[in-house]
Simulated assay, not measured.
Amino acid sequence: MAAGEVRRRAAARALTACGVGHVVGVSALGRGTPLAGRAGLVTASFAMDDLLAGTGAAYRALANPSFFENLLEEAASIRDEGVFADTVDADRKAPLVAVADIAAVAAGLLLDRSWTGTGSVPVLGPRDLSPNDLARVMTEQFGRPVRYERRSLDALRAELVGHGLDEAFAQGIVDMKRAKDEGLDAGVARTPDTAGSTTFEQWCARTLRPAVLS
Rank of each mutant, 00 (worst) to 15 (best):
A58P: 06
L62T: 07
A63W: 04
S66I: 07
F68N: 01
F68I: 10
F68P: 02
N70V: 05
L72A: 13
E74G: 01
E74Q: 15
A75T: 04
S77K: 02
I78M: 12
R79L: 09
D80K: 02
D80H: 08
G82N: 12
A85C: 15
D86P: 00
T87M: 10
D89R: 15
D91P: 00
D91R: 13
R92F: 01
R92Y: 05
R92T: 06
R92A: 03
A94Y: 02
L96Q: 08
L96R: 11
A104D: 15
A104Q: 14
A104C: 10
V105M: 01
L109S: 11
L110S: 08
L110Y: 10
D112N: 15
D112C: 08
R113K: 13
T116F: 01
G117H: 03
T118E: 09
T118G: 06
S120I: 14
V121Y: 04
P122H: 12
P122N: 13
G125H: 03
P126H: 06
R127W: 03
D128N: 13
L129H: 12
N132G: 02
L134H: 07
A135T: 02
A135G: 07
V137H: 04
V137Y: 05
M138V: 13
F142D: 06
G143E: 10
G143V: 10
R147M: 00
R147K: 13
R147A: 08
R147P: 03
R147C: 02
E149I: 00
R151E: 04
S152L: 10
L153T: 14
L156C: 06
A158W: 07
A158E: 15
A158T: 15
A158K: 15
A158I: 05
E159S: 13
E159H: 12
H163N: 08
L165I: 01
L165S: 12
L165N: 11
D166S: 09
E167Q: 14
A168Q: 12
A168L: 11
A170P: 04
I173K: 09
V174G: 03
D175L: 06
M176L: 09
K177I: 00
K177P: 01
A179K: 06
